[in-house]
């Protein structure tokens, strides 16, 4: 057999080094496929087998998957953008200009981050409604629903804190309006606003706080909750099949 790319590929996969990293083998048997999931740190949250119905597009519209995908895109692009960003006034705005004008593919990464952020908010909302209408919030998945609601709020907060970072007019006034809505909370509203902005107006302190929230605190919390969310999917019986649990006697299509 003449050497082919596939031949080399298979040779590579049978080397000791490869086998030490990817513990499962190359086979296509059920066992191998099961091991591929079980022994992969990223995939082991999923069960080895899934219900065929739950894989149908109509079951979930893959909204949760897409939400996770946007989160991962946002993490990747966000880390790259951080390399050209100084959370200070007015340097933050100059950095936006630099991204636009002098950083290779800077404007693309910024666009991708921005649109992915909007997409994530939208997808998470849609995910929630889809889960609701499919009835997937019902026991035993009620706790995972609560985590989902918290993740929704976190997503909103992540997006909101990121909104200030370009330090342009849009950012400044959107945050000002948002912060003023928050200060309407009786008793503690003003205090919360004060703590969040690090002062009474949206200024350099607020920018730094939003930066830390956006880049460190909220992503960490969100990542943790996402892990729990996924773990609970499996523990609560896998993805909801999308079967409407109809009461007895009702017409069933």
């Amino acid at each position: 057999m003449p050497p082919t790319i596939e031949g080399y590929w298979n040779d590579l996969r049978s080397t000791k080094v490869w086998r030490s990293v990817f513990r499962s083998g190359t086979g296509t048997s059920t066992l191998h496929r099961a091991l591929a999931v079980q022994q992969n740190v990223f995939l082991h949250l999923a069960s080895v087998k899934m219900r065929r119905r739950s894989l149908a597009f109509s079951a979930t519209w893959y909204l949760g998957t897409m939400s996770l995908a946007t989160f991962l895109i946002l993490t990747a692009t966000g880390i790259l953008l951080m390399l050209y960003y100084h959370p200070s006034v007015p340097q933050a705005y100059a950095d936006m200009k630099d991204l636009q004008f002098v950083v290779s593919a800077g404007v693309f990464l910024r666009n991708l981050h921005r649109w992915s952020a909007h997409a994530m908010v939208f997808l998470v909302f849609a995910h929630m409604f889809k889960v609701f209408y499919r009835g997937a919030y019902r026991p035993p998945r009620e706790f995972n629903w609560v985590i989902g609601v918290i993740l929704l709020i976190l997503t909103l907060f992540l997006s909101y804190t990121g909104y200030l970072l370009p330090w342009d007019q849009l950012a400044f006034w959107a945050i000002t309006v948002g912060a003023n809505i928050m200060s309407a909370v009786p008793v503690m509203g003003r205090k919360v606003r004060f703590l969040m902005l690090g002062g009474n107006t949206v200024n350099a302190n607020a920018l730094l706080r939003f930066y830390v929230l956006h880049c460190v605190i909220l992503p960490l919390v969100a990542g943790l909750l996402i892990a729990i969310h996924f773990w609970r999917i499996r523990k609560d019986g896998g993805l909801h099949t999308g079967q409407v649990e109809t009461p007895a006697g009702a017409p069933n299509e």
């Binding site: 790259l80 002098v102 950083v103 290779s104 593919a105 800077g106 990464l109």
Partner: peptide, 11 residues
């Protein structure tokens, strides 16, 4: 490759 380009500042 373009990550490398991105990481090398142009100015």
């Amino acid at each position: 490759v373009f990550g490398y380009q991105f990481l090398s500042p142009n100015v």
